[in-house]
């Protein structure tokens, strides 16, 4: 199953780059949803030799939440907010992709020098040599999306991508980590995204835009 784990991780890298490089908000949401589904399958695929009820439960929950519920919520916010469905980045798309590729190199370099709990590529552990770099890469990509995009919705997407990175790290490397922690993180994410989705809707109704630059309008008085 190691090849399938690698396939999922490569898919995560490609969706990250695609989200950085695409201009349509709807496409970005679908990409992040697809990534959520694939990453959500990791607990089952990665620990194929010893699948238990907890792993199946975690996979089901995260696929349902990150692949279907959260994207549906974001689509709803997108439609309700009635904004231009373009990403409007501060950094151009080719530049974002280049920064993404550069940070992938950085992550590979970094995780080659990092003592990990499970030796990468060790037989039977389901740990892939790619897991740590891809996890860090997802976190960096999420961060980049949060700081370089203008729309509030893209920042929610960046947050989700970051969470996917943390999830990857937890599932692929920290084998003994109780799944309860993962469930806790998952619940946090859903809560946060729910709040953000509703907030985006209200921001757009209040100031007719979800441009985060204009949130300064919410101050009491202008100086």
């Amino acid at each position: 199953m190691a090849a399938w784990v690698d396939a999922i991780l490569v898919f995560a890298v490609l969706t990250n780059l695609a989200v950085l490089g695409s201009s349509r908000l709807g496409l970005c949401i679908r990409m992040v949803a697809a990534q959520g589904i694939m990453i959500g399958l990791l607990p089952v695929v990665g620990h194929w030799h010893a699948v238990d009820a907890r792993a199946v439960g975690l996979a089901t929950a995260s696929v349902l939440l990150k692949g279907f519920l959260v994207p549906w919520l974001l689509h709803w916010a997108l439609v309700e907010a009635n904004v231009r469905r373009e990403v409007e980045p501060y950094i151009g798309y080719p530049m974002s992709v280049l920064i993404g590729v550069a940070s992938l190199c950085l992550c590979l370099w970094l995780s080659a020098r990092m003592p990990l709990p499970v030796a990468a590529g060790e037989a039977g552990t389901g740990a892939s040599a790619l897991a740590a770099p891809v996890a860090f890469f997802s976190i960096l990509c999420g961060l980049l999306m949060i700081v370089s995009r203008r729309k509030a919705l893209t920042q929610v997407l960046g947050y989700l991508v970051m969470e996917n990175g943390i999830f990857t790290f937890g599932v692929a490397l920290a084998l003994e980590e109780p799944f309860l922690v993962e469930f806790g993180v998952l619940l946090d994410v859903v809560g946060a995204v729910f709040v953000m989705g509703v907030a985006v809707f209200h921001i757009s109704r209040e100031i007719h835009s979800i441009d985060t630059d204009q949130l300064s309008m919410l101050r009491e008085e202008r100086r």
Binding site: L17, L98, L104, L130
Partner: peptide, 22 residues
Amino acid sequence: VPQLLVGAGGLATVALMLELVR
């Protein structure tokens, strides 16, 4: 068009990284 080509460059670079990691 540059976006498409930079995307292809990203794919090629990821492939090179995979080969390096192996």
